[in-house]
């Protein structure tokens, strides 16, 4: 009986080895990564979803209130709507000009001219600095006696622009900071994408008599599409989650003019101690970003299907 069992086990093990040995090794290699994601990504998402259904002030145990937090944030006149609009304005104001600027500079810097390397490096430098340092520096730049007002003085007749204390100007001021920090980084990504386009396509277009615009429109843009999709998705994700500038430069003010969803989540969670409400806003933002990611997958699939 024992012999029979042993033989059976040995046969099963041989079969398993043949079919699953490689899979097991693979699983072992990815396990640390999977565990990391489960603990630091998936668990917090599930916990946030659970907390979003509770009234929780950090110090007392959470109390289940169903969809109360969602009803609160979606009620008429809620600060959530203002933050949502601010977030879209910030993303739109930051992302679209940044794409155009980064691509235009990439097109310039793929040309051969003297000092190209130096300029590329100069434009890239801001991304190396931390957002905290940048925020402190830009607050000085925007100070009434700062260099920004000195720079625009000839245009304003010396009247100082309240860059960070006017609710119409402050959002624009933050957009300028955000673009300034990252455009050099995305310029380098576009340059890499442009350099990966085979020269034969350009030669063929020239032979066909295409002018510069036509070459850009029908050769460069389509072949740059994977890079463009990557840049678009990453900048949109970063834009929607923007928090540091709003926290360090304006604290969401004046009068909520720079309160984005990221900042509102912080404010509800800590100063206001409404953890449940903060979690509910996080879940809404999460849903928005999921939709964005699906659009990205759709666009990429379309690219490879054609």
């Amino acid at each position: 009986m024992t012999m029979q069992l042993r033989r059976r086990w040995s046969r099963w093990w041989d079969t398993f080895n043949i079919y699953h040995k490689h899979s097991l090794w693979g699983l072992a290699f990815v396990l640390p990564g999977v565990l990391f994601f489960i603990i630091f990504a998936y668990y917090p998402v599930l916990r946030a979803a659970q907390l979003s259904l509770t009234d929780y002030n950090l110090l007392s145990p959470p109390r289940y209130i169903g969809l109360g937090n969602y009803q609160f944030i979606f009620q008429e006149g809620s600060r959530f709507y203002k933050a949502l609009v601010n977030t879209f304005e910030f993303v739109g104001g930051y992302a679209i000009p940044m794409w155009i600027l980064a691509l235009a500079l990439a097109l310039i810097f793929t040309q051969d001219f003297r000092g190209r390397g130096v300029y590329r490096t100069l434009y890239f430098v801001p991304i190396v600095l931390s957002e905290t340092v940048i925020s402190i520096v830009w607050r000085l730049i925007y100070h009434p006696q700062g260099i920004m007002n000195a720079a625009v003085a000839p245009l304003t007749g010396g009247v100082k622009i309240p860059w960070l204390t006017d609710s119409n100007i402050a959002p624009i001021a933050l957009i300028i900071v955000a673009i300034w920090r990252v455009f050099g980084y995305y310029m380098i990504i576009f340059i890499t994408g442009l350099q990966n386009i085979p020269g034969e396509y350009y030669d063929a277009a020239k032979v066909d008599g295409a002018n510069r615009w036509q070459v850009f429109r029908f050769v460069t843009m389509p072949l740059l599409r994977p890079t463009t999709v990557f840049v678009v998705v990453i900048t949109l994700l970063n834009g929607f989650q923007s928090f540091v500038y709003q926290f360090l430069i304006t604290r969401g003010g004046p009068n909520d003019a720079t309160t984005t969803l990221g900042y509102l989540i912080y404010e509800e969670a800590f100063p206001n101690l409404n953890m449940g409400r903060a979690a509910a806003i996080s879940m809404v933002l999460f849903a928005m970003l999921i939709v964005l990611t699906f659009i990205q997958l759709y666009l990429l699939r379309q690219r490879y299907d054609t």
């Binding site: 002030n57 006149g77 204390t165 006017d166 609710s167 003010g253 004046p254 009068n255 909520d256 404010e267 100063p271 206001n272 101690l273 409404n274």
Partner: peptide
């Protein structure tokens, strides 16, 4: 649960001072 009180009062001031809202209206919000 008064963590939000300072923000509420600050915004009432800012609505009037920065956006020109009538004080009574701002305080009603």
């Amino acid at each position: 649960n008064g963590g939000e009180l300072p923000g509420i009062l600050n915004r009432s001031m800012e609505r009037t001072l920065l956006e020109g809202m009538d004080p009574a209206e701002s305080l009603k919000i």
